[in-house]
Design a binder for these strands. Structure first.
Lengths: 339, 339
DNA sequence: TGGACGAATGAAAGCGCTTGCAGCGAGGCT
DNA sequence: AGCCTCGCTGCAAGCGCTTTCATTCGTCCA
């Protein structure tokens, strides 16, 4: 099957017996041409199976109708949900999503962002605030608008749509304190290049501090966000520094892993141990026991990132920071501290 | 902050004191220019923070280094895993993923595919074999190579990378038959425009038929792929036509929902009821009880779709159909039929 | 009836890059 | 010494579209 070259606009114009410019206008800005002509052009286009050539259009208009997103691995359910919402919202406005992912590796993130910028995205969605300074430089120079999702900039300087992780974490930890827990452990995500993970851990520390408690180093592990890592982390904690009654996890995946490890060891949750997650992924509600967590509206974040971006591209004014409400979801995995 | 216009290749050329063509070659095909010149061009490009203009390049080369994927909602973990693998693999070869999703709606899929084609993707990845004939027409006319992921074309006509859903489903159902089950129910996905869902259900029917059994209409429900729908489906089945001892679910999300509904009703799994899923998502292993399912290597499918596509673009020969092994994973949610 | 105006169309100049072709020395060969 | 070859570079023609500006023609009003 030979790849026959696609019809160009010039072919459509010829078939319709009009000039190139008229054909272009007939398709792009219909009220500029006479209805009769417009119909002829439409017909010719349909007959030839004409598909506009996006690169040529982008070159001429300096718009690609394409938005880029540089995300952490989208097999994490929260990023999957956000990606889905983002793509869906963009598609409904006739924009398309250019997706790049990175494994929390700043070098890879920079490279991915550069690749998207080179592809001519009209806007860029990034996750969180921690980025390579070179990335910020590149963004500034390119002049491409960007949204930082998930976090909120306390300084209000960056365009963000996200939640207050630290505060939410304070509230969650407070819930455990209220239940009488005093000896805590934490299974955190990697905090190095991740402001969300850092803020969540900081929130826990802050809540504890306000009760004169602290999180000893041997009761904290930082690890990758996955069920398997959560399980392993809890095992390590239990071997290294047992005696805690509550585990605060960096997200629900880690918490579900922790739950599973408890089950394997016959530790009854929440009787012997309370476990808390973060994010409220779909599986949190059906875990056994159902997971106490903080609801983060991941899909809303994705949708709003798209909406805000498109509004900005349309020249509308958009508040630089949009903070979404989070909610403490108390289920069955947390309970009174054992006596 | 005024969006200063980015440096063009002409600016780089001027700064380096060479012609446009030399600058172009220095960056694209370094061995064509003298080392000294190349260094000057590189330096000038770096100094100006030059970012190539993808649309212009695409226009000139008829290549966008962009692959499109039209996926069902990527908040389904298997599509998330595949998307992740796909994006990752593409990025490693300096390609980028243009992602569009649709809610199992053929019209939306067609529109999404058209949008990607207009954006000039070099290749397209679709899911399954059931597509609007108009889509196939468009693909043929555009000459853009495409891969159908998840399914395998028995006719070997289409380029596919996937698994044999029907056979896997036969095997899974056989496992339940071996455990002595004779009264079955099925919570299937929507089969209308979904050959995978259809094949899975057909496989169950086939296995039953080989034992002279069948799946009465009132013991089958078709629904959306989600935990909530799985729960509701099982409830409906239980109310409409109780008495079955095994439920075969269209995927793990549905199965986990079914599991949850059983737990709520105090139906002991697997003592009173066996539940089987499909896909082997991460959560299947940590569900309570752990889910018996069929392992589908979703990430491999994504990765291979990318590899195959890039190989084809490079002119290499690629077997038209690549069938991946599936594996029956027996865990705790299936057991001997109650007496 | 003439002039002004507006609607509809066309001609042509880019958008920023790649690439075929040609030019130009320098060096090797006969 | 003359010719050819070869490595390097530059010129210029597109790639397929949008958009400005000019042109034409019909209409309306004075």
């Amino acid at each position: 099957m030979k790849a026959k070259v696609n019809a160009r606009l010039a072919d459509v114009a010829r078939a319709a017996g009009v000039s190139l410019s008229t054909a272009s206008r007939a398709l792009a800005d219909p009220q500029l041409v006479h209805e009769r002509t417009r119909a002829r052009v439409r017909e010719a286009a349909a007959m030839l199976g004409y598909l506009p050539h996006g690169a040529a259009r982008a070159l001429a208009t300096r718009r690609s109708r394409t938005i880029g997103a540089v995300f952490p691995p989208v097999d994490n359910p929260i990023f999957a949900a956000a990606t889905q919402a983002l793509a869906h919202e963009l598609a409904s406005r006739n924009y398309t999503l250019l997706l790049a992912t990175h494994e929390y590796d700043p070098g890879a993130e920079l490279a991915a962002a550069r690749a998207l910028l080179e592809r001519g995205v009209d806007g860029l969605v990034l996750v969180g605030m921690d980025h390579d300074p070179e990335l910020y430089r590149m963004l500034a120079q390119s002049g491409v608008p960007y949204e930082l999702a998930w976090s909120v900039d306390p300084a209000g300087y960056q365009h963000c749509v996200g939640v207050a992780h630290r505060l939410a974490s304070v509230r969650l930890t407070q819930h455990l304190l209220d239940l009488g827990h005093r000896r805590f452990a934490a299974v955190a995500g990697r905090t190095a290049r991740n402001d969300r993970a850092r803020d969540r851990l900081a929130g826990t520390r802050e809540a504890l501090a306000s009760h004169g408690l602290e999180l000893p180093a041997e009761r904290v592990v930082e690890t990758e966000f996955s069920v398997g890592h959560g399980r392993r982390a809890l095992r390590d904690l239990l071997e290294r520094a047992p005696g805690f009654t509550a585990v605060v996890c960096g997200n629900d995946l880690l918490a579900i892993g922790a739950l599973h490890e408890c089950a394997r060891r016959g530790i009854a949750v929440p009787r012997d141990m309370s476990v808390a997650g973060f994010d409220d992924i779909e599986m949190a509600a059906v875990a056994t026991p159902a997971l106490t967590t903080v609801h983060v509206p991941a899909a809303d974040i994705g949708r709003l990132a798209a909406e805000r971006m498109l509004a900005r591209l349309a020249g509308e004014h958009v508040a630089s920071v949009e903070e979404l409400r989070v909610e403490l979801i108390v289920r069955e995995s947390t309970g009174r501290a054992p006596a």
